Every structure is written in structure tokens, then in C-alpha cells.
Computed example of a mutant assay.
Amino acid sequence: MTQSQLKQQLRTDMTAAMKARDEVRVRTIRMVIAAISEAEVAGKEATELTDGQVLDVVVKETKKRREAEREFDNAGRPELAEKERQEAAVLADYLPAQLSEEEIATIVSDAIASTESAGQGMRAMGKVMGVVTPATKGRADGSAVAAEVKRQLAG
């Protein structure tokens, strides 16, 4: 079975970061590789993750960093918030290019049209999110996407 290209890239980059003595990058990539390994052995039998599944792990870890950063900022711990920001910046290198607000709005309006959800209000939220989520996965913050869906369904 072939190894995920993204996982291989992470390993290669970790080696390079170790040689460069980039502690933040080494720590962050090591943490992601550990999360990937954990995901591979979860369940009844171990499996090799696909690139899409590895990307899901990176997205999840990035989200954890953003949430921790917010919590540390709110708790008045700027040094810990900065650490989380640095780690999130490293992880951003492995995510696809992020969508702009206009691109998200276009994807949402297309989804509302394709699901014929216009005028149904918030009842159509789940149906629209079901179409929008795969199109924006890893490329936009889920809460920003949900807010745009709500805005367009309410309007």
C-alpha cells in the first residue's frame, strides 16, 4: 500500500526542520504525525490513511490551535496564545489555499440554488450545509461557512 503524499511531505519537512533546528516546526509536525498515527490505529484494525484523511487530521489540528489561541487570549496568557498562533501558521502550510469571503458566498448561493432551498429559511440549513461542506472542507473555517449559509437563508 502506498503512503499518503501529504504524510510523506510532513516527514520530509520534519527532517529538514530538525536539521535547521526550527523547534516550532519540529514540534508542530511531530504533533501532527502523532495525530495521524493515532487515527491510523483507531478502530478495530490499523489502516493507512489516504491523503484526504491526512488532510482531515491537519484541519482538525489547525482548528484545535485556533480554539486554544482564542482561549489563551481570553485568559490573558499572550505567550501561550502566541505559541498556538505559531503552530497554526506551520499547519497552514499543509492546507489548501483558503477561500475568500466572496468565494464562500458564491459556493453557498450555488448550493442554495442546487438544493432548491431558497425561501425555506433555517429549515434548509442542514441540506445546504451537506452540499457546501465537501466543497469548502479544509479551505474555509466551518463557522464562517455556517454563518454565510445562515445569512443567505435568512435573506
Rank of each mutant, 00 (worst) to 15 (best):
G52F: 12
A68W: 09
A124C: 02
G121K: 05
I107F: 03
I29L: 04
E79A: 14
T136F: 06
T12Q: 15
A35R: 03
A81E: 04
R30W: 05
E87A: 15
Q98N: 06
A81F: 07
A113T: 08
A39Y: 05
A42Y: 07
E79I: 09
V59K: 01
A113H: 10
V57L: 07
E103N: 06
K150E: 01
K44F: 13
I112V: 02
A113S: 15
L6D: 02
G121W: 03
A92H: 12
E79P: 15
R27P: 07
G155L: 11
K63E: 09
I107D: 01
Q5E: 13
Q53N: 12
M31I: 14
V131P: 09
M18C: 08
R66V: 14
L99W: 07
P96M: 03
Y94I: 00
G76C: 08
R11Q: 11
R27H: 14
S109P: 05
M18P: 10
V59R: 01
L80E: 08
R66P: 13
R151H: 04
L91V: 02
K7I: 05
Q8H: 07
R30G: 06
Q86W: 12
G126S: 15
R139W: 03
A97W: 09
R66G: 12
R123A: 13
G142T: 08
V58Y: 04
Q5K: 11
N74E: 13
A113N: 12
D141K: 10
A146N: 07
A42M: 12
E45K: 11
E38H: 15
Q98M: 04
T15H: 12
E102R: 08
I104E: 02
E69V: 03
D93K: 11
I104K: 02
P134T: 00
A89D: 12
M14I: 08
L99K: 07
E148R: 04
A92S: 11
R25D: 01
I36E: 00
G138D: 03
V108K: 03
S4E: 00
G126P: 10
T28L: 00
Q8G: 15
G43Q: 03
A111L: 06
N74T: 10
K150I: 04
D13T: 04
V90L: 08
R21W: 11
E40P: 01
S114R: 14
I29P: 02
E69I: 06
